[in-house]
Design a protein around this nucleic acid. Structure first.
Length: 348
DNA sequence: AAATCGGGGGT
DNA sequence: ACCCCAGATTT
């Protein structure tokens, strides 16, 4: 049997039941694929079900408010995906009369849809012969065929794309694509792959040359930036101080609290830090540390401190983006995970 | 070509 | 601690 036939046979026997697998509706597939970008199936699944329940079709999605979409997205990360989805849903209603496109060439023009996602939607919805190349496929191809070109170099991307295109010839595109990804996810895993019970062990370059742990090759490790966020929780009666995050930084468009970022851990005994807080909240300000946490992102480690503030006067001229909103309204807004967790734990 | 964008899970 | 996840977009 060929490499492809072995993979497909393995797939038909071992595939998971997933809620987006038994449809050819391009809208539903689009929903699942955007959610699953850089996201594990088990993490994305509840979000997929939630979004489908709220927006059963692309017109429902297009009619949503951006803050509602971001609220549903809360906790999933890479929030521009949610905003791009809303833009694309409205675009599809406007330019395609609400009929979601199924061809690769149309799909790849949509905001938030790149090579991978266009190949996935087109092959799953209309069986178009476009090979998906995601992290799973890189790994399976790299190991089996011994491709040692880095998967994140230009040369490597083209090499893997060309190889994947060759391999999908004469295959059933929808099934073959899903088989490759499922095989990578369950069998040819990044760590501790199941080589002992692998149907294509015999032809595998990496297994033969004991390079399974070395492939695929990936360049550059991200250098992590450390940051210190000092949040100020100001509550008077039934209102709380809120701030919407602006473009050019993490969590843009989401809502958090008034913030002073420092270059190291801020302390109430630090006169410099105290001066900044008084500039923003007045001389009578009383501060108290509520909680300290470490929040880890891909490119940043953020040390977060939450301060309760009393007897404060907000210098709105200094920070015009700060608003005072009803606590119940604040809870309805989309927040970064660390803020959402804080609110749930500390704010009644 | 490199940097940026989250949060969670595996080893 | 480090790597990866059904990647895309911006710089």
């Amino acid at each position: 049997m060929s490499f492809q036939s072995e993979i497909v046979t393995w797939y038909l026997k071992n595939k998971r039941e997933l809620p987006w697998r038994d449809t050819t509706d391009p809208y539903i597939i689009w929903l699942s694929e955007i959610i699953l970008q850089q996201t594990r199936v088990e993490q994305g699944k509840p979000y997929f079900l939630k979004f489908l329940a709220h927006y059963p079709n692309v017109r429902d999605f297009a009619n949503a408010a951006e803050e509602q979409v971001l609220k549903l997205w809360q906790g999933l990360g890479y929030y521009s995906r949610g905003r791009n989805m809303l833009f694309t849903a409205r675009y599809v209603v406007e330019h395609y009369g609400g009929v979601f496109p199924t061809s690769y060439d149309e799909l790849v023009k949509l905001k938030g849809v790149g090579n991978y996602t266009a190949a996935a939607i087109s092959s799953f919805s209309s069986n178009e012969r476009k090979a998906v190349v995601d992290g799973n496929v890189y790994r399976v191809l790299s190991r089996y065929f011994g491709v040692e070109e880095p998967i994140n170099s230009n040369a490597g991307q083209k090499m893997f794309a060309d190889l994947a295109t060759e391999l999908i010839a004469n295959q059933e595109p929808s099934v073959y694509n899903q088989a490759m990804m499922e095989f990578g996810a369950l069998q040819c895993k990044p760590k501790s792959p199941r080589c002992d019970e692998c149907p294509i062990q015999i032809g595998c370059y990496a297994f033969k040359h004991k390079k399974v742990g070395l492939l695929p090759i990936k360049l550059k490790k991200v250098k992590v930036r450390k940051r210190w966020f000092n949040y100020f929780v100001g509550i008077t009666n039934d209102e709380i101080l809120a701030k919407q995050r602006t473009p050019g930084d993490v969590w843009q468009h989401l809502y958090d609290f008034p913030l002073i970022e420092t270059q190291g851990e801020a302390s109430l005994s630090d006169v410099d830090f105290l001066a900044k807080t008084q500039e923003l909240f007045g001389k009578q300000l009383e501060l108290k540390v509520l909680e300290s946490k470490k929040h880890i992102l891909t490119h940043q480690i953020i040390y977060v401190q939450f301060f309760a503030i009393d007897n404060y006067i907000v210098n709105f001229n200094l920070r015009t983006e700060i608003k005072s909103v009803k606590i119940n309204d604040f809870k309805q807004l989309p927040h970064p995970k660390i803020i959402g967790d804080f609110v749930e734990k500390h704010i009644d």
